[in-house]
Amino acid sequence: MNRRHHDMGGLAAGPVERAEHAHAPWEKKVDALLRLLLAKRVMTLDELRRGIEEIGPDAYDRLGYFERWITSIGNILLEKGIVTVAELGEAMASVRRAAAAAGRR
């Protein structure tokens, strides 16, 4: 029987690490973005989950929680044709230019 990487109930693992971090502003924006996309019926929670499950075991373990979310959201929106690769490329370049202009790299 093949077990998928995210389906981890019952596996051995180390102690539960209880340190908590406050969400960064951009992480809250990922959360808000998902809520808006669900409310507008642009995508479903199941699509989000499927997108997270498809990022591969290495990325699943390496990425932070909201990094997984935004990766999935980006891929689902590309798949649906809501955004195109070129639009996203230009928009990301624009975000970087604005950050650099504000003294942030």
Binding site: A24, W26, K29, V30, L33, L36, L37, K40, V42, L63, G64, F66, E67, I70, T71, I73, G74, L77, I82, V83, E87, L88, A91, M92, S94, V95, R96, A99, R104, R105
Partner: peptide, 24 residues
């Protein structure tokens, strides 16, 4: 003051694009 990470960049870009497209 932290460097602008890849996923933060992606997030801001998607927010800007979807606003421009009138999704929200």
């Amino acid at each position: 003051d932290a460097p602008l990470g890849y996923h933060e960049t992606l997030t801001e870009a998607l927010l800007a694009l979807l606003r421009d497209k009138g999704v929200f």
